[in-house]
Amino acid sequence: MKAALIAIALLFALPAGAVEPDEMLADPVLEQRAREISKNLRCLVCQNQSIDDSNAELARDLRILVRQRLVSGDTDEEVTQFVVARYGDFVLLKPPFKSTTYVLWFGPAVIFTLAAFTLVVLQRRRARVEAKPLSPAERRRLDSLLDDGLDP
């Protein structure tokens, strides 16, 4: 029973991130928006963590800044743009869709299509070769080989 309760509690537990209690906003709606924005902002000190996850000092400063912007009435988009204007597109964990990132967005699809195309062409070619029936000479040779193999 106790184990089941703990299991259920764990199931509903939310990831805490690196947000300290003193950073949190009193308004739960604003705080939730801040969390969502922070999750897509890269911590440039650690690079592969969001500022929501990182314990770096700069990440903390940016989390507080995000909250200040929200309290002063910025939309989510405005807050993100505020940070991008200072740190560039690299600060976004989800890269923006624009001409300089087309390779990033379309690259995998292009490579997949090329690979699929190559595979189909190779498969067809092989099928064509296999469709050719054996000549009588080949048939006789095959039969004799098989007979040899079967005899002990």
Binding site: L44, D61, L62, R86, Y87, G88
Partner: peptide, 13 residues
């Protein structure tokens, strides 16, 4: 002191 201006300059280290 608090690094706020440095954020405007895009400082990260």
């Amino acid at each position: 002191l608090d690094g706020r201006v440095s954020i405007d300059w895009g400082i990260y280290g």
